[in-house]
C-alpha cells in the first residue's frame, strides 16, 4: 500500500537522515519535505484533497514554530485528523506534556544513532498505520529508540 509521509524540518541534515532511514526501511512510502512552518501550512492548504497519511513535525523551525503549526492544524476542521508526530531534539517533559495536550499523536526524540533512527521511524509508521488516527495514551506518547 502506497502512502505519503510529510516531514516538516528546516535542518537539511535531519531531512537527509530521515530520507535515508526511510529508504533503507524499504517501505512503499513517498516522502515530502517542507522546511518551515509557513511552507507547511501552505502545502496542507494546497493539498486538501490529497493529504499525507502522517506528518513528522520539528519544533524548532523559522517563521512558524512546530508548536504553532500543531495548534493551527488541530484547530482547523479541514486537517485536524492528520496524525502529527513531533520530531525534535528536545527532551523537555513540560513541552512534551503540552504537545500531548494539543493533540499530537507521538513524540520522537531525534536519536544520535542512525540504526536507532530507523527503528523509531519504523515503529511509528507501524503504529500510525495500525491505529490510523486514534490518539495514543500519554504513556505511549514518547517513542523510545
Amino acid at each position: 500500500m502506497d502512502f505519503q509521509i510529510l516531514l516538516a524540518d528546516d535542518d537539511e541534515d535531519d531531512c537527509m537522515f530521515f530520507r535515508e532511514a526511510l529508504e533503507e526501511l524499504s517501505l512503499c512510502a513517498t516522502l515530502k519535505t517542507v522546511n518551515n512552518g509557513v511552507e507547511l501550512m501552505n502545502f496542507l492548504e494546497n493539498n486538501l484533497l490529497n493529504l499525507p497519511q502522517m506528518l513528522f513535525l520539528d519544533l524548532n523551525m523559522p517563521r512558524k514554530s512546530g508548536a504553532e503549526c500543531l495548534s493551527e492544524i488541530k484547530q482547523n476542521v479541514k486537517f485536524k485528523h492528520l496524525p502529527v508526530i513531533i520530531y525534535s531534539t528536545s527532551s523537555n517533559i513540560d513541552v512534551m506534556d503540552q504537545l500531548y495536550g494539543e493533540g499530537a499523536h507521538y513524540y520522537i526524540r531525534k536519536p544520535a544513532d542512525f540504526s536507532n533512527l530507523k527503528s523509531v521511524i519504523r515503529r511509528t509508521i507501524d503504529l500510525i498505520l495500525q491505529k490510523d488516527v486514534l490518539p495514543s495514551t500519554r504513556e505511549e506518547f514518547v517513542i523510545q529508540p
Binding site: D11, T89, P111, A112, D113
Partner: peptide, 20 residues
C-alpha cells in the same frame, strides 16, 4: 546546552553512517 546537542547528535549520526 539544548542547542549544543543538535550538532553533537549529527556528529554521532554521521559517524554511525560512515561506520555502517
Amino acid at each position: 546546552s539544548h542547542d549544543l546537542q543538535e550538532p553533537l547528535r549529527k556528529i554521532q549520526t554521521f559517524a554511525s553512517r560512515i561506520i555502517e
